[in-house]
Simulated scan of single mutants.
Amino acid sequence: MALGLAVLTASGLLALAAPGDAHAAPSNCSGRKVRSLSFSTGAVHVYKQQRGWICAVTLAKNPGRERWMSVSVQARGQRPATVDGKDTHRMGPVRVHAGHRSVKVKGRVGSGAVSTGWIRF
């Protein structure tokens, strides 16, 4: 009984310490950040993961009001992986397996956007 109470108390404290908003973390991408693509209304953060995976997420510069957002990553020779919709802070992540191929990265927050040519990491 005491052990159960201790576990419940600890889990309650962890829940209070954890952010209540899923958008509090800057990214759901793991790995090494290889590029930040800034633009007028936000930024796209690009991460290189193990075994040739590339992950990207778009973050709003001024979070708070809902706007159209998107993030897209395309490995050369493949279709782009895209996530878009309305949000207040973040869109993504998207992941593609690029191997040793070049990728294109795009992001949008409201009227601002960024798009790369073919880049390698």
Rank of each mutant, 00 (worst) to 15 (best):
P26W: 03
D21C: 01
D21G: 02
R51Y: 06
H45R: 15
L59K: 05
D21N: 12
G77I: 08
S70Q: 10
G12Q: 12
N62Y: 14
G12V: 07
H23D: 13
P26H: 11
G12W: 12
A56H: 03
A25R: 08
L16S: 06
N62D: 14
R51K: 12
K61E: 11
S36K: 04
V46T: 07
Q78M: 11
T41E: 07
G42S: 15
W53P: 02
V46N: 03
S30K: 12
Y47R: 00
P63K: 09
F39I: 09
A60I: 03
Q49Y: 04
G42V: 12
L16R: 13
V73P: 01
A17R: 06
S72L: 02
W68V: 05
G31C: 00
Q74F: 08
Q50Y: 09
Q78N: 10
H45W: 13
R67L: 14
P63N: 11
A56V: 02
I54V: 14
G31H: 07
V34Y: 13
A17C: 01
R67H: 12
N62W: 14
Q49W: 09
Q74S: 10
Y47M: 01
K61A: 13
T41S: 11
R51P: 01
R32M: 09
P63Y: 10
L14A: 14
A60D: 08
R35P: 03
W53V: 12
A22H: 07
G12A: 15
A56D: 02
G77L: 10
V44S: 02
